[in-house]
């Protein structure tokens, strides 16, 4: 019981709040900013859970790369003020009800079941340092890394094919 304990719950609360904000914002840029906050608080939690390397990657790659990619697209597609108006038109409260109920029920079922667990396991925050992660990653999971490479290659080729056409045809216009 200490600071980290408290920190966990605060971060969790922040993550949840900002996640909700992120999915409900009308302005795409705002939403992305909220998402970044979510990611940051998750990074904090990672750190608390004893995974500093994951926390770093969360910030570097997720917040740093993926969200930025999103932002590029948002800007490229020019989702400005008009899109905000459109979003408010699309986001009718009536539409929220069923999804909300479904999510709620899922959560209740999940929660009820998990809470039935007796002698629950505690996370002591044992730190697994990056070095150890690296060792295992490039030893036991070496082939996994290779496969991740192929995965990225596939994504690269795919994104190239899909995106290139766009560029070329714009040039033609």
């Amino acid at each position: 019981m200490g600071l980290s304990f408290l920190l966990f719950y605060i971060s969790a609360a922040v993550a949840i709040t900002t996640a909700i904000m992120a999915v409900t914002r009308k302005n795409a840029s705002h939403a992305l900013i909220y998402l970044v906050v979510t990611l940051l608080s998750i990074a904090v939690i990672f750190f608390l859970l004893g995974a500093p390397f994951a926390a770093a990657l969360e910030i570097v790659i997720y917040a740093g790369a993926i969200v930025v990619l999103f932002l590029f697209v948002v800007m490229m597609l020019n989702l400005g003020r008009s899109s905000v108006a459109r979003e408010s038109q699309w986001l009718r409260p009536g539409m929220w009800v069923l999804p909300a109920i479904l999510s709620g029920v899922l959560f209740i079922v999940f929660g009820y079941t998990v809470l039935q667990t007796e002698n629950s396991a505690m996370i002591e925050g044992q730190v697994v340092p990056p070095k150890e992660v690296g060792t295992v990653l490039f030893h036991e999971y070496l082939l996994g890394v290779e496969l991740a490479g192929v995965l990225l290659l596939a994504a690269l080729v795919g994104a190239f094919h899909l995106g290139r056409r766009y560029l070329e045809e714009r040039r033609e216009n």
Partner: peptide, 19 residues
């Protein structure tokens, strides 16, 4: 080395499922 955190596993999973 620990981060002096001691919380039940379920709580983290609660957070995860909520997200």
């Amino acid at each position: 080395m620990t981060t002096a955190l001691s919380i039940p596993l379920e709580h983290v999973f609660f957070l995860a499922i909520i997200l």
